[in-house]
Simulated scan of single mutants.
Amino acid sequence: MQHEVKRVHLNESQKHQKYVKDEPKIKHYRDLTSHIFQLRDLQTYNDESFNATTSLLQLNPEFYTIWNYRREIIENAYGSNHAQLTQILNDELKFVMAQLRKFPKVYWIWNHRRWCLFKLVDLKQVNWGFEFKTVGKMLELDQRNFHGWQYRRFVVENLELEKLKSDQGDDEVLRLNLDEFDYTTAKISIDFSNFSAWHNRTKLIPKIYELAKQNPSSAAAIDHPSLHLFQSPLSILNNDLELIKTGIYMSPEDNSVWSYLYWLLSDEFFVNAFNASGADNDQNDYKQLLQQQIDLINEINELEKEDTGQENVGCLKALFKITELKEREDVNKDEMRVILQKLIKLDELRKGRQDYLDISSALQHHLLLSKLLVSSSPTFFETNIDVLANLIWLWDNQA
């Protein structure tokens, strides 16, 4: 099974029958490719070469060289006539949309759409509002497609540039980003496993806070249901800790919610808010918050143990990382050792060469472990238990 498509194993007779059936298609593809490369070598830029690229890209949209040639044709064959070029580019957007419906995760199709839009910008014929509605429909079809989310951020950035040209540009930009924040909330409420929605939220939160802080008149001028959350980083933090709590209870095996929780607890945007005054109470408040999350995760882990008979791997990984945040200057080696032992036993897929790990010895070098975890991305430990084990083993066995 790969990408939810079941692999079919063919015997020799079936392979031969498939080859005989596919041979005409293969020949057509090769002949068409050869013909297009000949046209390109001759710098042929006309309707014939353009239509030939259409045929080949419908067969193989990942053929990026053909996309490049298609752009050369558009610029050289139609670029001198602005009215014709505008029509060609708008037709291209329709062609690209048809391709995206069939191949929504091919980079080269998304790249070509961006190119078309920037050409339309040069012609002063772009419609970012229509593009914004279009990407919204794309995400309705596949709300977890990270290409679509990335493209949505691209469209929003260009909408911002357009709105800044108006008299109320700052107000409109702030409102647009608040709407995007609410959009992520809606998508997350539908599916807590929507990693792309969580990721988009990490981009929006510091951005909206800075927009509101830098333009207090804009913040005062607009009436938006989510604006009150951005009075301080801590008000956002408390709101999202409540939001993600539901996700953790519902899907404790899902990496998306754990990654976002770790971001909330470790990102400088929030941590610095605790250290703003430099008072000891601020740091104690931060450690108290971490302890509350540890208590919550322990509670969920116990519920999972009652339901399934074993502890939850996601909970254990989160406990390890959050404990490390809480005890950064004084790691509780015994507690870390117990969690690691449980993970080695439960996480078979990432166990790797854990047999080499002498936990009692390795945890004497907990500072190395801390540096590795702090300097790495939130998902480092989740996907690299075996690498971590080998690094610690090599450390312990240095001459």
Rank of each mutant, 00 (worst) to 15 (best):
N51R: 15
T379R: 03
L89N: 03
K163V: 00
I66P: 03
N11D: 15
E299F: 15
V257R: 02
I188E: 01
V338S: 10
S259D: 04
N284A: 14
F320D: 01
S34P: 00
F130S: 09
C116I: 04
K25A: 15
V106W: 01
V156G: 02
H147S: 11
I392Y: 06
L100P: 01
S277E: 15
K18L: 15
L261Y: 02
R201A: 04
P233S: 07
K326I: 02
L343T: 05
E382A: 06
F146T: 06
L57D: 02
N239V: 07
N46E: 10
L234H: 03
K371Q: 14
N158S: 00
K326T: 00
E92S: 11
S259F: 11
E324C: 13
V374F: 12
Y64E: 06
S218V: 08
V8A: 11
S266L: 08
S34T: 10
Q87G: 04
M1Y: 10
G129T: 08
L141I: 12
L343H: 05
D142F: 07
S166C: 05
R328A: 12
F132K: 02
F192H: 08
R71T: 13
E172V: 09
P252R: 05
D91P: 00
V257C: 11
N397Q: 10
N275Y: 09
N200A: 10
D223V: 10
K102D: 12
F154S: 04
W198G: 02
